[in-house]
Amino acid sequence: MIILKAEDITVGYTEVDILHDVGIRVKSGEIVSIIGPNGAGKSTLLKTIFGILKPRNGSVTLKDEDITGLNPDKIARKGISYVPQVENVFPSMTIQENLEMGAFIRDDDYSQRIDEVYDLFTVLRERKKQKVGHLSGGQRQMVAMGRALMLDPQVLLLDEPSAGLAPVLVSDIFEKIMEINATGVAMIIVEQNAREALKMAHHGYVLAMGRNVLDDKGEALLANEEVGRLYLGG
């Protein structure tokens, strides 16, 4: 079943359009990776889905509901969470408080959800009273994902989760992403680390110059010679 669908998205910051008629589909429980060169508009697509940018044209549909142009807080309530690439934590607050902020719009008792997030990222539980600004990059990324998971989203949008991390940590983070996915959360991942991203993905999209270039199963894209030469560095 298709859970999230973006169609014919055209969007830009000022007068210049960054995306032209871009489309993407996510089936429930699937990981979808978006790869492409710098400036292809990958992050812009995530921001548009989450309502931070308003598309000039096109639509975003969650299950059967049109959510185009809604504000981020509304979209979060509908079941999509978003982890920005940078500045994705509240550095002067503790880990526990960061997770609480993730649940800001929840009025019910979310202590069980916090426990589940700590079960996923056990290293965070030991340090829940520590300020996030003092953590390492990998742990921060975990806090950022933990915050986004607090609303128990159906779809998680991850913008370059491995950016700026040491190679050892990158595989850790990808492992966590697989674990999160195993709990049934569908995901869209934008990655520079394209090869790894496609290995995890059920489905992959290649974006270039703000347009759809190609989309196929993850393995198929990995096997595709042209993709390998142009986007996976040989």
Partner: peptide, 17 residues
């Protein structure tokens, strides 16, 4: 807490609803 969060990172506060 939301006030401190907003002072820390207004964009992320918005994203968090």
């Amino acid at each position: 807490k939301a006030m401190r969060a907003t002072a820390d990172n207004m964009e992320l506060a918005l994203i968090s609803g």
